[in-house]
Design a binder for these strands. Sequence first.
DNA 1: CAAAAAATACCTGTTTACCGGTATTTTTGG
DNA 2: CCAAAAATACCGGTAAACAGGTATTTTTTG
Lengths: 214, 214
Amino acid sequence: MIKVLIVDDQSIIRDGLEAILTTDPEITVCGHACNGLEALKLCKEHAPDVVLMDISMPEMDGIEATKAIRKRWKKTQVLVLSMYNNHEFVNELMDAGASGYVLKNTGRLELKEAITAVANGHRYLAKPVQATLEESQQAMVGSNGGERYHSLTKREKEIVKLIVKERTTVEIADVLSLSTGTIETHRKNIFHKLDVRNAAGLVKYAMERGWELT
Amino acid sequence: MIKVLIVDDQSIIRDGLEAILTTDPEITVCGHACNGLEALKLCKEHAPDVVLMDISMPEMDGIEATKAIRKRWKKTQVLVLSMYNNHEFVNELMDAGASGYVLKNTGRLELKEAITAVANGHRYLAKPVQATLEESQQAMVGSNGGERYHSLTKREKEIVKLIVKERTTVEIADVLSLSTGTIETHRKNIFHKLDVRNAAGLVKYAMERGWELT
DNA sequence: CAAAAAATACCTGTTTACCGGTATTTTTGG
DNA sequence: CCAAAAATACCGGTAAACAGGTATTTTTTG
């Protein structure tokens, strides 16, 4: 029996995945988590064989959670289940120690296949994901390959929300009763931390990772 | 028996929803569609009682699909299942003729409840959605309330993709071998059509609706 | 074919964004 | 308490974005 922990921030998806997986006699679902922190708690409790991990989540996202799980529980394999197939995510997660990466628009059969594969110690990459990985490695050659993620401060996250809401620097300064210079500094720091070039990149970054932007 | 058609672009979610719904003896799933166009085809074929409709989809999104379905098959009810709870979506979809709106982070029980409710001719709004609707109606009073959506041309969609990729106007002009003036015109037209103020708003708009941005 | 839509290009401005610094005050954590 | 992190603020400069036009060519479509 393969013990699986489901990690996703949307409960209807967790329920759906459980319903799919429990039809397989080889698989048993040992728990649900709606973010990375909860996932760590439940790993400690249940020692799952496979963690089925979404990336976009509040509190702690799938990248950080994967790193933490792989560090502490070496026997637990992480299988990423994401809607995004971009080389940043694929590279970061494989570096973080994930054993597999499948997309949300794959069928239930491939999902079960992937779960059994990683449970048996194999690596499983969906075909489009593998293509992405190879493509990016040709471009990378021997680039940095490290730590591009730093969590933002409370103030910075506040400003991210306002940028997503189409506010300009002047408007943000007005809302927060700060000088425009301060907001510009925050913008700069945010862009550097997240390694994006402009507001468009920032919005994409935040939405792909499922940040709370209300 | 309630005949349900599932519409979502991610097949693992369709499979999950089907697995959840088929445990209910009152409900039968009569088909899957991965976009609005397919949904219309299957409505014609199966005449479902309820269409469980996601918003973010390529080809034809949930808003257009809802309008089309309600226009042609008056007995078919549309229940929106979305991850987004913003007043633009809620208002547009209720105007489009949806009978209910639930969020993806609700449990399976509420989903079944909502399906039976709309199948019986009732309106079902999840609590947070209702709050959003009331809040927005206080602000609206008697505003335009109509047609803010126009589909973009092929060229415009091409440029949207490049803006999402953090490209500047000069870079886009270079890639497409056009003058910067042309790109600026396209940007302006895109912003006006989608009613956004800047690139941040555009990226948000496109990602919320699940546009193909690869 | 003719009309409509799309794609192209330019103009004149003003505003905002972005880059590279530096620097002070306030808050936080060990 | 003291060091580190966070939050605040400013400067000088370049580039880009945004707003408001107008106008021509190409393509699509009834």
